[in-house]
């Protein structure tokens, strides 16, 4: 294992981490406004299949990813309508969204299993070395010799951080998640912000799915998301609802995702089938450690998962 192998491995971890970053950011924004949407996996599936089929139909990378984002938004809006407008239980609705999204992708995707993404899209998202930044030794190779969507992710992280911490809308949305009653008394639209954050979150989760089917794999496979949506939900907890920490966590899990495959060449005493369980096992361990540490103070939005009805007494 020399430095070269290691740089190569980390570069691949960035790619594997990208869908996790997108989904984690999506769930983070959603949860900031107080909605606990456990349908990330479902929205990713919807984004993956719609993005993929749109790509097949149009051949356009742009429309493919717009399609992916819109599919994610559709899933999020179903969740929003059922939980916000019709006031149903968020946990059960989120689980339903996951099952629905998985079924949806299977329904549309079964006939095209194994089909490759259009060459034009694959060609668009080859690795491009950024000028200057890409020339930094080691770091440049790992972070700045990637495809365009990875770069877009960097921008999105900063945008999300900026939105949440510096802008009025982000502050208002956060207040909705912390204390919807207080938000309402300030004239902040609780319903409006919850829908808005759900939509933003859905779009990001849809993009995450699209990244998997169009760039990462890039062909249509059954059970492609493979629990990444759930890892994203765990990463939000791990990140303490901070977008920058979320990125670090996602990179780590991106690395875990590929470590089994990458270590194959070294003839390890452990079966790769067991190494494949690593990301899931690590999620468990990380979650447990996190809950052990933060027994006293939680960073979760105080109103997370609680519905709000103004006139309820």
């Amino acid at each position: 294992m020399d430095l070269n192998w290691f740089v190569c491995f980390l570069g691949a971890a960035v790619v594997a981490g990208t869908p996790l970053v997108l989904a984690t950011l999506g769930e983070l924004i959603t949860e900031k406004s107080g909605s606990l949407n456990l349908g990330v996996e479902g929205m990713m599936y919807m984004g993956a299949i719609i993005g993929f089929t749109t790509g097949l139909q149009t051949g356009s990378p742009f429309f493919a990813f717009i399609g992916a984002a819109l599919a994610g938004i559709l899933g999020a809006m179903i969740f929003g309508f059922v939980t916000i407008t019709l006031r149903a239980n968020q946990i059960v609705t989120g689980l339903t969204l996951t099952m629905f999204g998985t079924g949806f992708a299977g329904f549309i995707g079964t006939p095209i299993i194994g089909e490759r993404a259009p060459q034009k899209i694959i060609d668009t998202f080859v690795k491009v070395k950024l000028p200057l930044l890409g020339d930094i030794p080691v770091i440049g190779e790992i972070f700045f010799n990637q495809d365009y969507l990875v770069y877009l992710t960097y921008i999105l992280i900063i945008l999300v951080g900026f939105y949440l911490y510096k802008s009025r809308y982000g502050l208002n949305g956060t207040i909705v998640g912390e204390n919807p009653k207080a938000a309402d008394s300030l004239g902040i639209s609780v319903i409006g912000y919850r829908y808005l954050h759900l939509a933003m979150g859905g779009a990001l989760c849809g993009l995450a799915g699209g990244y998997l089917s169009l760039i990462y794999v890039p062909s249509w496979q059954d059970s492609m998301i493979a629990g990444r949506g759930w890892i994203a939900v765990a990463l939000v907890i791990f990140s303490k609802w901070n977008p920058y920490r979320a990125y670090i966590g996602a990179l780590f899990f991106g690395g875990l995702n590929i470590v089994g495959f990458r270590l194959q060449q070294f003839d390890l005493p452990v079966s790769t089938y067991l190494l494949d369980a690593l990301p899931y096992l690590m999620t468990v361990i990380v979650l447990v450690f996190d809950s052990m540490r933060s027994k006293s103070r939680s960073h979760a939005p105080a109103g997370l998962g609680t519905p709000y009805f103004r006139e309820e007494r």
């Binding site: 179903i78 059922v82 149903a88 059960v92 339903t96 099952m99 079924g103 995707g109 006939p111």
Partner: peptide, 24 residues
């Protein structure tokens, strides 16, 4: 009909969405 079997789980998901919503 060559309709993927996933149609059943899609339908299940839809049913649950509607029933959840109908509680309202």
């Amino acid at each position: 009909f060559q309709i993927p079997q996933a149609a059943a789980s899609l339908l299940q998901g839809l049913i649950l969405f509607f029933v959840l919503g109908s509680e309202f």
